[in-house]
Simulated assay, not measured.
Amino acid sequence: MTDAREHLVHWLRDAYAMEGQAISLLETQASRLETYPEARAKVEAHLQQTHRQRDAVEECLGRLGADPSTLKDLAQKTVANVQGMFHAMSEDEVLKHALGGYSFEQFEAASYRMLAAAARAAGEPGIAETCEVIQREEEEMGDWLWEQMPTLTETYLARSKAGVTAKR
């Protein structure tokens, strides 16, 4: 790959697969947040947003005459499923999901920041704008997780001390 457009297509394919991974992670989290209704509602809302983001990335690829990579998509979903399994085995599953989610949101935001710069370099300002919108959405979810970390921790500890389901 030697030109900005080729890199942009490659990285958009990565982003499409990344959103597939996010969908798998969020679906697992939402289904496991039985005793954390506020967190569950936020995760479900972000899941819907993530579906829209994935559609937007696919549309960007289409504007460039490209399709998503099925192999990358499958690999990322597999990683998400394995991660979800490991978290489900943890006593403090809800906190592991929150930590992993926060890290993932930061990674996504940085990816879209990079994509916006690549799109501008490739002469694709519309794609850059789409990536900037998604970047802000990922930052907002990351900020929410950051702000909720103490509350989730305190709720987990209180439920654990009371001997009620704290895990999820």
Rank of each mutant, 00 (worst) to 15 (best):
G20L: 00
A110E: 08
Y102T: 13
D67N: 13
W146E: 14
A66W: 00
T151I: 09
A39D: 10
A4P: 01
V43P: 09
L12E: 13
E139P: 04
L152M: 14
Y16R: 03
K161Q: 14
E59K: 13
A15Q: 09
A166H: 15
P150H: 07
G62M: 05
W144K: 08
Q21I: 09
S31F: 03
S24H: 12
M149I: 08
A128E: 04
A41W: 11
Y102H: 13
I127C: 00
A15H: 06
A98E: 08
L145H: 05
A75Q: 12
A166R: 15
T35P: 00
A30P: 05
R54I: 04
R136L: 14
L33Q: 06
V9E: 03
C131M: 08
C60E: 03
I23K: 07
Q148R: 06
E124L: 07
G62H: 13
E129C: 01
K96T: 12
E137Q: 04
P37T: 08
W144Y: 14
Y112R: 02
T2W: 11
S24N: 08
L145Q: 06
T153F: 03
E140V: 03
E91D: 13
A4F: 02
Y112Q: 06
E129I: 01
E59P: 02
E139A: 10
Q106T: 10
A162T: 10
A128N: 07
A98S: 14
A15C: 11
G163N: 15
A158K: 15
A116P: 01
F107M: 14
M89G: 12
D67F: 15
A128D: 05
S160F: 14
H10P: 05
E105I: 03
K77M: 10
E58G: 12
I127R: 00
E91S: 04
K72N: 14
H46N: 06
H97L: 11
E91C: 02
V43F: 07
S90K: 15
S111T: 15
K96F: 11
S90V: 04
I23Y: 07
G142K: 05
Q29M: 13
K77L: 08
L26R: 09
L25H: 02
K42D: 08
E93V: 08
E132S: 15
V82A: 14
Q29A: 13
V43K: 06
E124K: 11
S90G: 15
M1P: 05
L25E: 01
R168Q: 08
A119E: 00
D14L: 11
S31V: 04
W146Q: 07
E132L: 15
A66Y: 00
E44G: 10
C131L: 01
L47T: 04
A22N: 01
E108Q: 15
L71M: 11
S103T: 12
